[in-house]
């Protein structure tokens, strides 16, 4: 953890939404115990399945909605009560972009830039994000990736200290994704505190310095990607996942003696997870020899963020 003060500090967040007609007009508690801390010069990812409460958490952090409980401090202030002064230091890219449809990108960016006393150069942003290639097209006719780039430019034009990105890679083609990811890393190096939500493991693994896993409205785990994917017990070594393909229906009973989890995940594909050591691999090979099995494929890797996520939430991310 760096020594600077957090740019965003959320403790014990509670938020009710509704009333929901299907539940006789009752309110639904969508957030109940989100904790989150983000620091300048870092990318902090909120990772969770759709509906886990990531966007609602961001809305509370941005002052768009008032929490029902807990505390939210954005640059040391309550974002719901703070005024234009705080908003001028924070950039927001919403999930659907939040862009008006009839206008062209550059006039829109100039309009937004006018709201700040010291905006970034619109021309530089337009160049950097490749917006000049489609600057004569109204926003309504842009592709998803093009809209996303305009929305990112609109979030950055105020030269913010804190940047919120809700699902930044949604709808991005591979080229746009590379441009956007490079820019995010550059902004981090400039010292911005970047908070992004994603349901994509790859995004979190590639971009995030620190990850908060949100499930069913709670923070259920947090740490660096390395910390989260490491085994809980240091002495046990790094957790790994080994998969092998062989004929379906092998009797795994004799492998159960090992201190590992062994499953036939789908017929013909077997997974072995745990702190795999060389002697375990010997036992595995002996098992194959005893059953006359030559695996068609063997793969071994450290536990991924996805495995951690599945362990914690028991849910598929996508």
């Amino acid at each position: 953890m760096p020594h600077s003060d957090p740019c965003l500090d959320i403790q014990g967040l509670v938020k009710d939404l509704g009333p929901v007609a299907a539940l006789d007009g009752k309110m639904v508690r969508v957030i109940d115990g989100v904790h989150l801390r983000a620091f300048p010069g870092q990318v902090t990812a909120l990772l969770g399945a759709n509906g886990a409460g990531k966007t609602t958490t961001l809305e509370c952090a941005q002052g768009l909605t008032r929490p029902n409980g807990g505390s939210v401090r954005l640059l040391g202030k309550d974002p719901f009560e703070a005024g234009a002064g705080l908003r001028s230091r924070v950039g927001v890219m919403l999930q659907e972009g939040g862009l008006p449809q009839a206008i062209r990108p550059v006039p829109l960016l100039r309009h937004v830039a006018g709201m700040y006393s010291r905006p970034r150069s619109v021309d530089d942003l337009v160049e950097r994000l490749g917006i000049h290639h489609f600057s004569n097209t109204p926003i309504r006719r842009l592709s998803g990736g093009q809209k996303q780039r305009v929305a990112l430019a609109a979030a950055l034009v105020g030269d913010p200290e804190v940047l919120f990105l809700d699902e930044p890679s949604a709808g991005l083609d591979p080229q746009s994704r590379a441009v956007v990811f490079d820019l995010i890393q550059e902004l981090r190096a400039e010292g911005l505190g970047i908070i992004l939500t994603t349901h994509l493991m790859d995004d979190a693994q590639r971009l995030a310095d620190y990850v908060f896993i949100i499930d069913a409205g709670k923070t259920v785990a947090h740490g660096t990607v390395a910390e989260l994917t490491k085994a809980t017990d240091e002495s046990a070594g790094v957790e790994r996942l080994l998969t092998f393909d062989a004929r379906p229906g092998l009797d795994l009973a004799e492998l159960r003696a090992l201190p590992l989890e062994v499953h036939e995940a789908v017929p013909g594909r077997y997974t072995v997870t745990g702190a795999l050591a060389p002697e375990h691999l010997v036992r595995l090979a002996q098992f194959w020899a005893a059953h006359g099995v030559m695996p068609a494929a063997i793969h071994m890797a450290p536990r991924s963020l996805e495995d951690v996520f599945l362990d914690i939430s028991g849910k598929e991310l996508r």
């Binding site: 941005q62 908003r87 927001v92 919403l94 659907e96 939040g98 937004v112 709201m115 700040y116 929305a151």
Partner: peptide, 12 residues
């Protein structure tokens, strides 16, 4: 289109 929300997050 979320324009009201976006503009609410700017100094406007």
């Amino acid at each position: 289109y979320g324009v009201l929300r976006f503009l609410s997050t700017t100094p406007l």
